[in-house]
Write a protein that binds this DNA or RNA. Sequence first.
DNA 1: TTGTATGCGTTATCAA
DNA 2: TTGATAACGCATACAA
Lengths: 349, 349
Amino acid sequence: MRHRVRSGEARATTLNDVARLLGISAATVSRSLSKPDMVSAKTRARVDEAVRKLGYIPHAAARALAGRGHRVVGVVIPSLRFGVFAELVESLQAGLDRAAFGVLLGHTGGEPDREYEQVRALVERGIDAVVLTGNSHDLEVLRLLDDAGLPAICAFDFSADAALPCVGFDNADAAENLAQHLIENGRDGIAMITQPVASNDRARKRVAGVKRALRRIGKAMRPGHLLECDGLLPSSREAMRDLIASGEPPNAVICFSDLIALAAAAECRAAGLRIPDDIAIADFSGVGLSEINNPPLTSVPIPAKDIGRIIGEQLIARLEEGAPLESVRIEHALEIRGSTLCGSLQTFA
Amino acid sequence: MRHRVRSGEARATTLNDVARLLGISAATVSRSLSKPDMVSAKTRARVDEAVRKLGYIPHAAARALAGRGHRVVGVVIPSLRFGVFAELVESLQAGLDRAAFGVLLGHTGGEPDREYEQVRALVERGIDAVVLTGNSHDLEVLRLLDDAGLPAICAFDFSADAALPCVGFDNADAAENLAQHLIENGRDGIAMITQPVASNDRARKRVAGVKRALRRIGKAMRPGHLLECDGLLPSSREAMRDLIASGEPPNAVICFSDLIALAAAAECRAAGLRIPDDIAIADFSGVGLSEINNPPLTSVPIPAKDIGRIIGEQLIARLEEGAPLESVRIEHALEIRGSTLCGSLQTFA
DNA sequence: TTGTATGCGTTATCAA
DNA sequence: TTGATAACGCATACAA
């Protein structure tokens, strides 16, 4: 089979072609397709057959222009390389798919400044709604959405005072809870390896949560115990290495993601540190990798799939019935595993 | 700030609004925006200012209808949960972004039957080109693409006789090479844990490659040594468990992905098997997780990022200049690590 | 239940 | 260099 080059693109069959073939009006064909119960069963049958025969496929742009909406929602995330975002997008798309909505993607690479340009690109493409990441957005973005009259909803963090409706758990509460668990297990020297707090509001809230927990027992996080990395393996290992080499190594580390935690654990092994005896490791687990470590890692799982599903449902209700978008607070969970427990439990897997 | 409900959507500003404000024709504004050097510098400046002032954003559907193309390409993949696909999409989108093309997503969940419906949904949305996964596609899909006059290109496997242009390495060759390496290191009882071969052409080719290598030394893969799983952790561990429990356990396992390999390694640990002393493990690494295992895993890295970049470049050339799409064969690499080498190397990380 | 006519926002063609 | 006008393919209000 030759690879198609064909520059003279055969024009696709249109509604009119179908109508002409049947000797009926285009309007009837249109109705038969979009509002089947407005035409006679007989006509509908004939139309369906002609459509099949001609291989007719509706022209999305024309439909959109004629007022039916584009039936596409835009999603702006930092990067698909992080499992949680991939999971969100997949789950969202699965839900929207059933209502015949498509998903257009925009990546910021984790740079908040790029959110505006990405949203704008999506708006130009004619999206009907937009899903953003986190609860920190430039006024410029909010204004753009408002001007365009676009429904928007944010994933991954719940904040009561968010500017836009949002779906997720409260990252500060979850982090506080996780730190609390560590404290109860005798760890008061808690460090964190996180995505940059300057550009990530979930990171900021988690740090705040951990500090809250420490403050309650009259402690504080040491300055050198808050390290940032880009979330990938090399920089994560480097961060752990710095932590180990620091004057006052921690006896527990909370990692922003399971990938970071895996890297940290590998680095501890390399340094001869035993988990959890010498150091405890816990994480917010994105891709379910936490349990694959030896020992398995205690973690707060991020319900990306649920978030995607909920947002999908809300968007459909909003776009099809005008229902208002609403924030949803998801309760976080705490999966306790061997990496934070002293004793013999930690080596069974 | 109140959550927007506004059902009476303020109509967005159009080209005409800009023209009216300036007292010039819409045609001129249009030209000023899409073919800047066809209007006077003065007009262009005025238009640009008015556009900014009014917050005008071009309407993609109208543009598409008027003949400029939709500037969107569709990508059909099994699932974003697998890192390689996420990486492909991200890389592709980054490339297309610069040429102002968007990316629409379709998921098959790994069921080849769903490819047709997904491609169709994308075609209805008005894509200008489509990227598929692998080199095995229903005739129905090929016909749909042909009817729609849509350029298509496939990612992740190179086959000289593919029906469509494709970009990737030859999975059979790579697998043979990997098996060869194991054989050279004294392993002739090679097993595989793979995605279902019935629905995954890369899996089929890899199995064929391994069998080829074994045949060359007069061996064959035992019937019970070819296990399938869904690629996620639980079923991967289960597969490894079955392998260990089988009458004739292998002395090497080639895993379809790094995630599967990680699960397999964990299962070996649980069973008290030492890697690589008792059993070697190697994989095709999707998300770069292979090196995080203890010991690090030998693997063939999947160049998803490169594939995405190359496909992006080709699509842009095709869509903007009518250049033909061409298959690109990428040479695979073999990253040898501790998991397949006997000796003292294997525990350094 | 069906047909006719009109408009959606933009680009392309043709004149000016 | 600019303006007027006609498509583009479809959905809808209105008429029949």
